[in-house]
Design a binder for these strands. Structure first.
Lengths: 339, 339
DNA sequence: ACATTGAAGTGAAACGGTTCACTTCATTCC
DNA sequence: GGAATGAAGTGAACCGTTTCACTTCAATGT
């Protein structure tokens, strides 16, 4: 392992000079600089990141904390983050939930963090965030000078979805809720119910927890009620998927027997049979925005700009009555595979 | 930022003692140890990872180098890796292709690497790998004491697929090839063609590059030939997907007009209409095996054990003639969403 | 009674960079 | 001609740990 001392020796200069030359700092003559760079090249020198970070107290790295890799939900967010990182001189460290999370966060192995992992508590985030360690949170409404929440505009998409159902003459609606502690769930439910209320509709709520199975179970519960609803809004796509499975088993068809709407626009949604109406946002843009703001804060102390990511309702087969929608595949395969 | 010195001072011991106590090394009295740990707790002390790594010359971190996040191809591999990491005292650093790759690899910010990114050259891998820096490669056939290739057993699955087609009486077959420089493509093609040869079949080859579009284009090329083949094997699912799109546009149906088989078993494959016959491997197991061997090498110097990951053919609608296959969704949704 | 042992604890030198404060020396200015 | 300036380069402290080599001292063996 060659060190900067080796380089300095070979170039016939002091370690200081070598460091300045390699980092393009200090004032070093052109000839000397060249000699140092050549020596470094010849010795295949690469500065030890630990020594450097230890001294600089900066890592030039952004940490992203997610709960897991699968689900293709994070995928696009990560892609967005990655695409921005590529244009900066920062590096990216992705950390799935585990002990590591604590370690990396606490040991300051990154200069800033993007958090999308409910296992990390609000308290932890609050305690960690500081001018020297800004944090962007994607999954909670937590905010101060050093914490930027970047959330979905749940209300917008849900309102559109409600209108879509309502305008088709559907009146008996039900809501399948996700995890109780999730902000997104609360907002989606709150919006849906209040829209319904404005139309003097009462909407029963089935409690789920965002998993496919809980959607399946919610469906069974609803099937037992005296009168089937005409439309069901599920707080996310996974539950909608489970709900549709239960319907299929019962011989019920969407949208004719029951119109279904989900939330998230997971990749599968457009490929299902019937394709699933849902509410989507650009997760790519989400990730990109997060890291852009974070780096802007780190480099220029630009104050955080909270904002809500716009969502939009996507009418597909599962909720669109008597429409001549093209079959899912033919209509959408292109963008589906473009990723 | 509190340091070990603060802890030592508070506990009324030397820095050395504090370090030994915190790391459970050296020989330290029970009472003293307790006092140190308490002091650390009270001061909310967390050792600086850079200083530690600098001194220890070990990072206790495994680096995974992939070319990108999307495609849901890496997803399961990462999950597999992650699941093993969770049970060890190693951490995980996932690095999408970029300058970072070079930096992290060269600067030894990780103790070992798992490489799945063709942008990293064989030369680089060879130069980097050493007893102190073992590397597992998932995308190339490169091997020495410190480099472990973990590849798919392409032949096995492809052979099964060929038989499946052949046993249904199909004789006119074509092959859509992927990127020329890819080992996987070479092996799949080689196997398919030699199986065909044994049956005295001649199989024309259309060159593609693993992308959906290249599959689409390959289809158009084939459509111009005098006689349509009865079965087409695509070297991966993406191309098969493009091929099916072209067929649809032409009013051709799989499997009746043309039986289609892909390779990879991407999540979409089972959800398409028709569902896509393909060849799959447990990518989860793939990742898990890789990291297990790597850590075993690092911790115990266990020599690398090259092996091929078994693959299996999955008969689905796109290639199964006159069969009563259940509809894709009903049959498979459970495992599809279980992730 | 004295050497031996081993547990408990310590001082200081690393690890490999960065950077502050400083020197040297040629050039410019008045 | 002497002070002022500034470019080029250097020595050494420092970042926060770990760990080698060492001391101290009570307990043990003979």
């Amino acid at each position: 392992m060659t060190t900067i001392r080796d380089v300095a020796k070979r170039a016939g200069v002091s370690v200081t000079t070598a460091s300045y030359a390699l980092n393009d700092t200090g004032s070093i003559g052109e000839a000397t600089r060249k000699r140092v760079l050549e020596a470094a090249e010849e010795l295949n020198f690469h500065p030890n990141a630990f020594a450097r970070n230890l001294k600089r107290r900066k890592t030039q790295t952004i940490g992203v904390f997610i709960s897991r890799f699968s689900g293709s939900f994070y995928e696009e967010i990560l892609e967005g983050i990655h695409s921005v990182i590529l244009e900066t001189d920062y590096e990216l460290l992705v950390c799935p939930e585990s002990r590591s999370t604590r370690r990396i966060l606490l040991h300051r192995q990154v200069d800033g963090a993007i958090v999308f992992d409910r296992k990390i508590t609000n308290d932890q985030v609050l305690k960690l965030a500081s001018r020297r360690f800004p944090i962007v949170v994607l999954d909670r409404d937590l905010q101060n000078d050093f914490i930027l929440p970047l959330l979905l505009d749940n209300a917008q998409g849900v309102r559109e979805a409600f209108r879509h159902l309502y305008n088709q003459g559907l009146r008996r609606m039900a809501f399948v809720a996700g995890a109780l502690d999730a902000l997104d769930n609360a907002e989606r439910m709150e919006t849906f119910l209040s829209e319904a209320k404005r139309q003097h509709l009462h909407v029963p709520v089935c409690q789920g927890n965002f998993t496919e199975v809980s959607g399946y179970e919610a469906a069974h519960l609803l099937f037992q009620s005296a009168q089937l609803p005409q439309a069901v809004f599920c707080a996310n796509d996974q539950m909608a998927f489970g709900f549709l499975r239960a319907m299929k088993e019962r011989g019920l068809r969407a949208p004719d027997d029951l119109a279904i709407v989900g939330f998230d626009d997971i990749p599968l949604a457009r490929h299902m049979q019937p394709s699933l109406s849902t509410i989507g946002a650009s997760r790519f843009e989400w990730g990109a925005t997060a890291v852009r703001q974070l780096i802007d804060f780190l480099d220029n102390e630009t104050p955080f700009q909270p904002l809500r990511l716009s969502t939009r309702f996507l009418a597909r087969q599962s909720s669109t009555l008597n429409a001549e929608l093209p079959p899912a595949l033919g209509a959408t395969h292109d963008s589906a595979l473009s990723s």
